[in-house]
Computed example of a mutant assay.
Amino acid sequence: MTVRARILVLLSALVVLTGVATASVLHASARAERRNQPQAGGPRITSGAVTLTEPGRMVFRNMAWGPYRDELVSAPATDPSGPRTASRVKCLRFYAAAGTGVCLQAVHGPVSDTYRAVILDASLRIRARYDVPGIPSRARVSPSGRYAAWTAFVGGDSYAGTNFSTRAAIVDTRTGMLTPSLEAYRIVKDGRTYHAADANFWGVTFASDDRTFYATLATQGRTYLVRGDLRGRTVTTLHTNVECPSLSPDGTRIAFKKRVPGLPEDAPWQLYVLDLRTLRETPLAEPRSVDDQVVWRDDRTLVYALPGDYGADLYTLPADGTGKPRRISTAAVSPAYVG
């Protein structure tokens, strides 16, 4: 090939690469512009004051496209599909109780994202920050507001398969004392201390005594509901095949997702409620697979997220196995009833 031919080939390649780069920039710009545009037909959202103590409100992560995407918003608890007030605080996962919130956030860096948990006061001001070692997945606050917990994926990014690793942390919001991983607690299984290198914990839920909590333990290919003791720093297995437990307000039942044989590998769960006294399970009237840690609206009603057009929608369902699911809000996830 002559020098002239080589130069022509090089120039042609440069023209092609320039065109590709320009198209990529324009595509990214258009995509960003679409994300900043309010969602057509979506909920009405305005910026304003959001607190964690306002009576009759529900606070959640807004999933609607537009300038308030991913922000905590407030809506009437009796009408979660109604007008939303946006807070300017962004969270990937969120929960709140007794005027204390936990918000799991992405921190965007030049090379990759990192994650953190921030403890919020009733006015959404940051009280404390903690590093989170992976992709956030679950968040909870104890009924008194004293303790907060979160779970992150440190290997893998889905509960559906078996190739993942999680880390569950608990912090005392009064003292700032952090337990970075429940793996530091002693495991009691079948009445004996249990050691396993593959132990994973996730989905913490708190009782009202500021001592007891429940969570999922996975080991040797099985999952267990465990009862934890914050003072004794122990967890004790109670029941098998329980994931993402959520304790009822009266402390008598656990709502959870259960793997059911025969369902697809990527959607293997059904919702159940477990009576803690009898360990009797009640299947709930939700035919779809739910990958969420449900929230108790009250002692009779559950709220949970399912995939929707803009990420997730919220549904409600009776906790006694009767009724049928009902969508209560679109483009919403991580609800907390406040006030």
Score class of each variant (00 low, 15 high):
2 T>L: 10
6 R>W: 12
7 I>E: 12
8 L>S: 13
12 S>D: 11
15 V>M: 14
20 V>D: 10
26 L>K: 12
27 H>F: 15
31 R>Y: 11
34 R>F: 12
35 R>I: 06
38 P>Y: 06
39 Q>D: 08
44 R>W: 12
45 I>M: 04
46 T>E: 01
47 S>K: 09
48 G>E: 00
48 G>K: 00
49 A>K: 10
50 V>Q: 01
59 V>F: 11
63 M>C: 10
65 W>T: 14
66 G>P: 01
68 Y>P: 01
68 Y>D: 06
75 A>V: 04
77 A>Y: 02
82 G>H: 08
83 P>V: 12
84 R>E: 08
84 R>S: 04
86 A>M: 02
87 S>W: 02
90 K>R: 13
94 F>D: 03
95 Y>I: 01
97 A>L: 05
99 G>P: 00
113 D>A: 08
113 D>Y: 05
115 Y>F: 07
116 R>T: 05
118 V>I: 14
129 R>S: 10
130 Y>I: 13
131 D>I: 14
131 D>L: 13
144 S>M: 07
154 V>Q: 04
154 V>L: 07
156 G>T: 09
161 G>T: 12
164 F>I: 09
167 R>T: 14
169 A>E: 01
170 I>V: 14
175 T>A: 08
175 T>L: 11
176 G>I: 15
178 L>Y: 06
185 Y>A: 00
188 V>A: 00
192 R>D: 11
194 Y>E: 05
195 H>L: 15
196 A>E: 10
197 A>C: 04
197 A>N: 13
197 A>P: 01
204 V>L: 09
206 F>Y: 09
208 S>M: 13
211 R>H: 12
214 Y>M: 07
215 A>D: 03
217 L>G: 01
219 T>L: 11
226 V>W: 06
226 V>D: 03
228 G>N: 06
230 L>F: 02
230 L>N: 00
238 L>S: 01
238 L>I: 03
238 L>V: 05
242 V>N: 03
248 S>P: 01
252 T>D: 15
252 T>S: 14
264 P>S: 13
264 P>V: 14
269 W>V: 04
269 W>N: 00
271 L>F: 09
274 L>S: 06
274 L>Y: 09
277 R>C: 05
278 T>S: 15
279 L>I: 02
286 E>W: 07
286 E>V: 10
288 R>Q: 15
291 D>F: 06
299 D>Q: 11
301 T>F: 10
303 V>E: 03
306 L>R: 05
306 L>H: 07
309 D>T: 09
310 Y>N: 13
310 Y>C: 07
314 L>H: 07
322 T>L: 05
322 T>V: 08
324 K>Y: 13
324 K>E: 15
327 R>I: 12
327 R>G: 11
328 I>V: 10
330 T>M: 08
332 A>V: 05
338 V>C: 03
338 V>N: 00
339 G>P: 03
